[in-house]
Design a protein around this nucleic acid. Structure first.
Length: 732
DNA sequence: AATCTTTGTCATCCA
DNA sequence: TTTGGATGACAAAGA
């Protein structure tokens, strides 16, 4: 896998080198300055005016027309942005040497009318010897579908280069390029030649060079560039290699070779490149990749390629034409069918280009989609057939997915920080590709203001609860004046009340008793609401009913109107009344709150009968139990509040996990679709020695350590290994 | 008058 | 065994 990464990472570099070797130099900045300021902004980075609100402005920069931040295109932007930055960084790369390895995967010896796409600039390297024709119908259709934004980023056609003459899409014929080239075109080409070539995001760049124009044969072949080795190649060597790879030798007089460099988008950290080579006798003929019969492009966001239909979601898409994945055997890693159109966000890059012969137009009719499932997840038959001694390979897509989803997940993390409700999770699938985080309802985020409100509310609730206890305690049990009054009435000796306070505080402040019960560990055990008991339990406990709350004013009036003793009696608790009735010589407060030793000393000081002692013990017992009951109730309430909060947290966590699950599922689904499409296309291009296509009912593609294998369904494992195995990618 | 809440109390368990 | 905290259950009082 590491090798694979290396190769693809270096692919960009070598791709650039390849262009340089061939001599094509294109100054994209020129176009960017004059034609594509938004793209320039992407490549060059945001201007200072944008940097502050980079996130939003970058998005606007991408489309240039203010895509809604919630749009699903946003991740396209990020991916494209990242990709472009990396591409641009190639300007600063210094690759001392490289090896260009290319091998022909398929060569159609027949003269066919290709149905390749062309959305990028066409550069005739022979300066008039070839002509790149851009089918305007596609451009028109795409513009119709994608709006002005597409034209913004498309470097294709007359808008950017002015070197392409409009062509009838149905014609798709060969052109005498030089005849069609205007002087302006030629001049422009000359300029381009002298300029550095730069790759725009998702651009296709067609170029070619002419050697001879006598022959009228035309080849459209696809070969892959396993980019990665490190030997030096001169321009001549490169060309020789290309010629050696491509059937130049067989047809030395082939006039023009057209390379269609598919600059792939990024899948995770991988870049994918493809090169389509088309050889014309006279000129490079660029035709539409879209099915001419396809009318969906202008009405729907899809581009029909052959029998495949993929969404065309963004303007970038039209420029991104990766229709085949290379499986360089040189990597020696397990081959992987990957879809370059699947960028890190998992969004499909729509434009699939038919790069093969015309036969491939019926891919669907030849191969059902069922074949692909077997490709991706080999059926039992495959298992039996796949006896390539190699151990079970890890699912390459898992790794790729992991890679590709990193960025998206990071975005999701941002969104997560904003918080999602469970209800919002249902929207996620539709917004996975967007910066949904921006528009997320943050009301459920732990860090969100709303949630803060919730927390505050809970806290307030808790606080209010505490306050209620406290207040009730204060109101119901004592005020300082009341305590003083009570003590004065009962002749109690002061000086020990602070001790009671300490004792009461300390008795409930040890949280260790809740160890092991997380929900309870944070329960507030500061039962300071017991403090009022230290003053005058009896009076206060009784006053709680009549003096607390609304009754305080009434009680004060009653205190004025009634004899004090009557009021005290009426407000006294039963135990206090009993105590008075039994002539207990000290207050119930002392009875209840004195430490045992002092309590016993107090009892010893007074000569009390059994009834008195029994009442005192009952009073003490009930008093303590009363406080205990209050503490118990408070703890119960606190626990309930804690559990309530825990439920909310778990609900949020569940929603987040569900969202992530959906995102993963979507990504996997998209990847499978792309693999299916690529596999179909690959399969459709494979030919036997006689140029016939393989029947899907008889053959199937299978991964192997050396590449993608074409195996016969009827072959035994051993047979398949020995006789019927064909490697799509040959080792170089 | 019925219902709900608050509070006190009892019984019980447990440290 | 005593003391006291914890808690469920019940009842009284009040809203």
């Amino acid at each position: 896998m590491l090798y694979l990464k290396k190769y693809f990472t270096e692919g960009l570099i070598q791709f650039t080198i390849l262009l340089s070797l061939i001599g094509v130099r294109l100054d994209l900045d020129t176009y960017l300055n004059n034609q594509l300021p938004p793209l320039r902004e992407i490549i060059l980075g945001p201007s200072s005016a944008y940097t502050q609100t980079q996130f939003h402005n970058l998005r606007n920069t991408l489309d240039g027309y203010g895509i809604h931040p919630k749009s699903v295109d946003l991740d396209h932007f990020f991916t494209t942005r990242r990709l472009l930055n990396q591409v641009r960084s190639l300007d600063h790369l210094r690759v001392p040497s490289t090896e260009l390895s290319a091998w022909l995967v398929h060569r159609d010896p027949e003269t066919v009318v290709s149905a390749t796409s062309q959305s990028g600039p066409s550069i005739a390297l022979d300066n008039g010897g070839s002509l790149e024709d851009v089918n305007n119908s596609e451009a028109s259709a795409m513009r119709g579908a994608g709006g002005a934004s597409e034209t913004t980023y498309s470097l294709s056609g007359e808008d950017s280069l002015g070197a392409v003459a409009p062509e009838d899409s149905q014609e798709q014929g060969e052109r005498e390029s030089s005849d069609d080239l205007s002087k302006e075109d030629i001049d422009l080409i000359d300029i381009l030649w002298r300029q550095d070539i730069d790759l725009g995001a998702g651009r296709e760049i067609w170029f070619g060079y002419s050697r001879s124009r006598r022959k009228k044969t035309k080849h459209l072949s696809t070969f892959f560039l396993p980019l990665g080795a490190q030997t030096s190649l001169s321009l001549q060597e490169c060309l020789r290699l290309l010629e050696a790879t491509f059937p130049f030798g067989e047809e030395p007089e082939v006039a023009t070779v057209k390379f269609m460099l598919h600059y792939g988008l990024k899948l995770g950290r991988f870049f994918f490149f493809l090169i389509d080579m088309e050889v014309n006798n006279t000129a490079v003929n660029v035709t539409m990749n879209n099915d001419p019969n396809n009318n969906n492009a202008s009405t729907t966001e899809s581009a029909t390629i052959g029998s495949f239909e993929l969404p065309r979601s963004t303007l970038i898409n039209q420029d991104v034409s990766l229709h085949q994945a290379s499986l360089p055997s040189c990597s020696q890693d397990f081959p992987t069918l990957f879809n370059p159109e699947l960028d890190s966000t998992g969004v499909q890059r729509p434009t699939l280009v038919r790069l093969s012969s015309s036969n491939s137009s019926n891919i669907n009719s030849t191969f059902g989609a069922t074949n692909l499932t077997g490709l991706f997840l080999p059926p039992p038959l495959n298992n039996t057939t796949n006896l390539t001694t190699t151990p079970v390979l890890p699912d390459p897509f898992s790794s790729l997915l992991e890679e590709s989803m990193l960025d998206e997940i990071s975005l999701l993390d941002l969104a997560m920080e904003e918080g999602f409700s469970q209800d919002q999770a249902s929207q996620l699938e539709d917004e996975l590709d967007s910066d949904s985080g921006l528009s997320l309802d943050s009301s459920h985020s732990p860090a969100s203001p709303s949630n803060s409100e919730t927390s505050c509310s809970s806290a307030a609730s808790s606080s209010s609860t505490s306050a209620t206890f406290s207040e009730e305690g204060a109101v119901g049990y004592s005020t300082d004046s009341e305590a003083a009054t009570a003590e004065a009435e009962e002749g109690a000796v002061g000086g020990y009340q602070p001790e009671y306070s300490k004792l009461c505080r300390m008795s409930y402040q040890d949280p260790s008793q809740f160890h092991g019960i997380p929900q309870l560990e944070n329960v507030n055990h500061n039962h300071t609401y017991n403090l009022p008991l230290a003053s005058s339990y009896s009076e206060r406990s009784q006053l709680s009913a009549s003096c607390s709350k609304k009754g305080r004013d009434k009680q004060m009036q009653q205190m004025k109107l009634q004899p004090p003793q009557d009021c005290v009696d009426r407000q006294s608790s039963r135990d206090e009344r009993r105590a008075r009735a039994m002539d207990i010589p000290f207050s119930n407060d002392k009875i209840i709150n004195l430490p045992v030793e002092e309590f016993n000393e107090l009892l010893a000081k007074h000569h009390l009968n059994e009834d008195q002692l029994s009442l005192i013990r009952d009073i003490r017992r009930r008093g303590k139990n009363k406080m205990a009951a209050q503490n118990c109730r408070k703890r119960k309430l606190d626990t309930i509040l804690k559990l309530e909060q825990g439920v909310q947290d778990l609900q949020r966590e569940k929603a987040q996990l569900l969202k992530e699950k959906m995102e993963y599922c979507k990504c996997i689904r998209q990847t499978k679709q792309k693999v299916q499409s690529l596999s179909q296309e690959l399969f459709a291009q494979l030919r036997d020695e006689e140029g016939r296509r393989y029947s899907a009912s008889e053959y199937f593609l299978q991964y192997g350590p050396d590449g993608v294998l074409l195996l016969s369904r009827n072959m035994t494992t051993e047979q398949s290994n020995k006789t019927d195995k064909k490697q799509k990618d040959k080792k170089k």
